[in-house]
Amino acid sequence: MIPHKESFEYLHTHRPRSRFLQISLTLALLGPAISWWIGNFSWSDLTHQRRIDNLRRFLDNIRPHPLRHQDWDWSIAWKWVLDFLTEPGLNATLSTLAISILAISFAALWGTILALPAAKTLTRASPFLPAGGSEGRWRHGAWNGLYLLTRFSLALLRSVPEYILAFLLLAMIGPGAWPAILALAIHNTGILGRLGAETIENLPPEPMASLRALGARRSTIITSAILPPALSRLILYFSVRWETCVREATVLGMLGITSLGFWISEARAHGQYDRLLLLVSLGSLLVLLGDLVSALVRSRMRQDLR
């Protein structure tokens, strides 16, 4: 008997299925299990005597330095925190923030510029309109080549992690804030370029098509029909990526760049785990603050998109 079209049997046997998805999900489920099996990871490693001794030393060391040989006293602890904030703490936090802001500004600028040739709907011989017979084959090829080249360069830009980029740039440019700014900017340009291109491709095509049919040039279409409607979403992406920039900027200092990370690696090298913990909490506060600002910007942008 053929099951009825709306019966459970029919829906079950005719549900959409994809062999590729089945294999991918199986791999995704098995992957972690296999890695725990063949990898060198085990929980018992954590209860090893050596680890426990190490942990005890660490816990002794995170007690604020002036309080190490006496009872806990809030006023001394507070003074220690304040001293620390005035000496490297606050400066390093502000530098971290400044690095992230400059990085996202560069990335926003270049990401938006590169998003244009990376948008398939714009980068073709006859944008937004059905292809006419007048365009030659080489023109199609050239536009298509530009599109593919931009897409590939964006993929390359974002494929190297920021930390490794900063490490390589540091050897060339030397210490200072620039390696961190450039590393963050390069990586995020790759990401924002792709997101921007997808935003442009998903815009409703009618306004662009009618402008083009009236004989408008690409530059006119970009400034009047692409950037204004795409801007809300672009700013939304900027703020999302800025959040990660703040997170990464704290860490990039570990390569010798004057942000929080620099002092973190100093404290680590000297075994001053009390300062280490304070610096990590300072970084965490900065990240939470960044999240808050970015959430505010995003809610505003969502209002515009509605």
């Binding site: 954590l46 050596r50 680890r51 190490n54 942990l55 660490f58 816990l59 930390y163 997170r247 990464e248 704290t250 860490v251 570990m254 973190i264 680590r268 785990y273 280490l276 913990l277 990590v280 970084g283 965490s284 506060l285 990240v287 939470l288 999240d291």
Partner: peptide
Amino acid sequence: RSIHEILWAILFLAALG
């Protein structure tokens, strides 16, 4: 979420080796 994975790594390296 607010603590970067590298910072977690540094804390764990200090605590565990």
